[in-house]
């Protein structure tokens, strides 16, 4: 219940934070909302020598739209994402996903950037980010680079973040017309994490065919993934319940599902298909409503 000692810095600017990070190297951990890191530190599963608190830096918490692109600052809390009017209108998948994270208190403190950088294999956001084709903006003293979500998640608890880099922003395109999305999740009864979490976004063309379909799945494999098999089965097709059900059967094609006390690999695979179907069906309903 008590973390080990560490050296603490609360930089006031991103530059200062980057400098500290460069100086302290891998012994340092970044503290955002702390809701992934602090529990691990209290159990002493994580014992970083240095903590760099990003909480005092102004300008890392925002949600804005510019020319159809939405950008969200890494320090934006889940609660802010959940309640953002802009997002509810322009990319409702993300608030719907945020609302499924942890509980009220966790959402009030936990941040988008913190959750993504921790890369828990059962975290909710990654599914949505994959479905949104989002880009992660990584900043270091050398400048910034962007990594698409698909490449950002490298393995369990491992991301594309290199030493000295801070995840500062997430960007993606706002929904185009006749787009529907949904996040559907099977909760772990104890931790609330996703045993299976499926984020689906689809866009219909004038004839009702799927002109864009993306499905991101979390909780199932060591890292979140795009269910490309499902997407291919729907792209350019006239979307209906039957076709969605058929395509959803491909939810775990090419991945080896995880197994733990709550769900065997076989059950996870089956649930991935069920929740993919449910997410897609809900997304379709929403897209059609706009038509």
């Amino acid at each position: 219940m008590i973390p080990a000692s560490f050296e603490y810095f609360a930089p006031r600017s991103l530059e200062e934070a980057l400098q500290l990070l460069a100086h302290h190297g891998t012994e340092a951990k970044l503290l955002a909302g702390g809701h992934s890191l602090l529990p691990m530190m209290k159990l002493r599963l994580a014992t970083p020598r240095t903590l760099i608190d990003l909480g005092r830096i102004r300008g890392l918490s925002y949600i804005r739209e510019d020319g159809g692109r939405i950008s969200i600052g890494a320090m934006t809390t889940h609660a802010e994402v959940e309640s953002s009017e802009l997002l509810r209108r322009r990319a409702p998948l993300l608030p719907e996903t945020a609302a499924e994270i942890g509980d009220v208190q966790v959402r009030n403190r936990g941040t988008l950037g913190g959750s993504l950088a921790h890369a828990d294999p059962a975290a909710d956001y990654p599914a949505a980010l994959l479905a949104l084709d989002a880009e992660c903006v990584l900043t270091s003293q050398k400048g910034t680079r962007t990594v698409v979500a698909k490449d950002f998640f490298v393995d369990m608890l491992t991301t594309a973040l290199q030493a000295g880099e801070i995840l500062t922003e997430v960007r993606f395109a706002a929904d185009s017309p006749r787009t529907g999305s949904a996040y559907r999740k099977l909760h772990h009864p104890a931790s609330g994490f996703a045993i299976v979490g499926v984020a689906a976004r689809l866009t219909l063309d004038a004839t009702g065919k799927g002109s864009a379909v993306s499905v991101g799945i979390t909780g199932v494999a060591p890292k979140p993934y795009r269910a490309t098999g499902v997407e291919r089965g729907l792209l350019g097709q006239t979307l209906d319940a039957k076709r969605i059900a058929e395509a959803s059967a491909q939810a775990t094609r090419g991945v080896e599902p995880l197994s733990d006390l709550q769900a065997s690999a076989r059950y996870r695979a089956a649930m991935a298909a069920v929740f993919t179907r449910r997410a897609l069906a809900a997304a379709l309903g929403r897209a059609q409503k706009q038509g």
Partner: peptide, 20 residues
């Protein structure tokens, strides 16, 4: 110890990672 009682959710994935 601690790894067994809290890490079980991550154990499968972690073992895979180490082996890989």
């Amino acid at each position: 110890g601690m790894v067994a009682s809290i890490g079980s959710r991550l154990l499968d994935g972690a073992a895979r990672m180490v082996i890989a």
